[in-house]
C-alpha cells in the first residue's frame, strides 16, 4: 500500500519548513495543505485537538504533531535515506538538546522582534543575537551542526534564516557581522536542494511580517 502523507502547514512557519525539508530529504511525496491560522479548519482542529497548531503531519490517517517530533518520526519511519539524527546515543542527545534550545529560547526571542514594540522588541533583539552566538560557538568550524552531514539541528534552525531579513529590518541590526560562521552555514544550507525547495524567499517573508503585525494589532 502506498503511503498517504498529508501536511497541514502555513507557508511562513519555520516549524512547518522543518517538516517539509525532512520529508524532502527522505524523498517522500506529500499533499501540502495550506491552513488559515486566523480561521482554523475543521481538519486542523480534529487532527491537533490539544494545541490546534500547524504543522500537523498525517501519515496514513494518523496525525503527528510538533515539528521536532515529526522530524524524529520521519527519520524512524523512513530510516534508510539520509539519516537525520546521528546513530551514536551521545551525538543524538546533543542534537536533541540543541533542537530543544532552539524551540525554547530562539523562537521566543524572535517572537518579541516581530510581535512586540519598543523596549520589549529591543530585549528580544539582544537576546536573539546572544542566542545566535551560542549556536555559532556550538557550530564552530563544522560544516553542519552534526559535522559532515546535514541533519536534525540544521533542519531545526534553518527556517529562521528565511526570517533574518525581516528581523533585521524590524530591529535595525545586521546578523552577518555578529555571526559570520552561522551566516555562512545558513547560506550553505540554502544551497541544499531540500532547503532551496521549501524555504520561502526572504523578501516574501519581509513583506508578510507587517501584515502579521497588523493582524495582531501592532501596526
Amino acid at each position: 500500500m502506498a503511503d498517504e502523507v498529508i501536511l497541514l502547514d502555513f507557508w511562513p512557519s519555520m516549524f512547518g519548513m522543518r517538516t517539509r525539508i525532512a520529508l524532502e530529504e527522505k524523498n517522500i511525496k506529500f499533499d501540502y495543505r495550506e491552513q488559515d491560522l486566523f480561521n482554523k479548519s475543521s481538519i486542523l482542529l480534529e487532527m491537533n485537538p490539544v494545541h490546534k497548531k500547524i504543522p500537523v503531519l498525517i501519515h496514513n490517517g494518523k496525525p503527528v504533531c510538533e515539528s521536532l517530533i515529526q522530524i524524529e518520526y520521519i527519520d524512524e519511519t523512513w530510516p534508510t535515506k539520509n539519516p537525520l539524527l546521528p546513530s551514536d546515543p551521545y551525538q543524538r542527545a546533543q542534537a536533541r538538546f540543541w533542537g530543544d534550545f532552539i524551540d525554547k529560547k530562539v523562537y521566543s526571542a524572535t517572537r518579541l522582534i516581530w510581535g512586540a514594540k519598543g523596549e520589549e522588541q529591543e530585549e528580544g533583539k539582544k537576546e536573539f543575537i546572544e542566542l545566535l552566538k551560542t549556536l555559532e560557538s556550538e557550530l564552530g568550524d563544522k560544516i553542519y551542526f552534526g559535522g559532515e552531514t546535514f541533519g536534525y539541528v540544521d533542519i531545526a534552525l534553518i527556517g529562521f534564516y528565511s526570517w533574518f531579513e525581516a528581523y533585521e529590518k524590524l530591529g535595525n541590526f545586521s546578523i552577518e557581522p555578529e555571526c559570520p560562521k552561522l551566516s555562512a552555514w545558513a547560506k550553505r544550507c540554502a544551497q541544499r536542494e531540500s532547503v532551496a525547495k521549501f524555504l520561502p524567499a526572504s523578501d516574501k517573508v519581509t513583506k508578510f511580517v507587517p501584515e502579521l503585525r497588523k493582524k495582531i494589532g501592532l501596526e
Binding site: 546515543p89 551521545y90 543524538r92 542527545a93 536533541r96 538538546f97 530543544d100
Partner: peptide, 20 residues
C-alpha cells in the same frame, strides 16, 4: 555525566538512557 560526558534536560537524558 556518563564516562565524563554531560547531558542535560531531563527529556533528553531519558532518551539517552533508553538509547544507551
Amino acid at each position: 555525566v556518563h564516562n565524563g560526558k554531560p547531558i542535560s534536560e531531563s527529556l533528553v537524558i531519558l532518551e539517552y538512557i533508553d538509547d544507551t
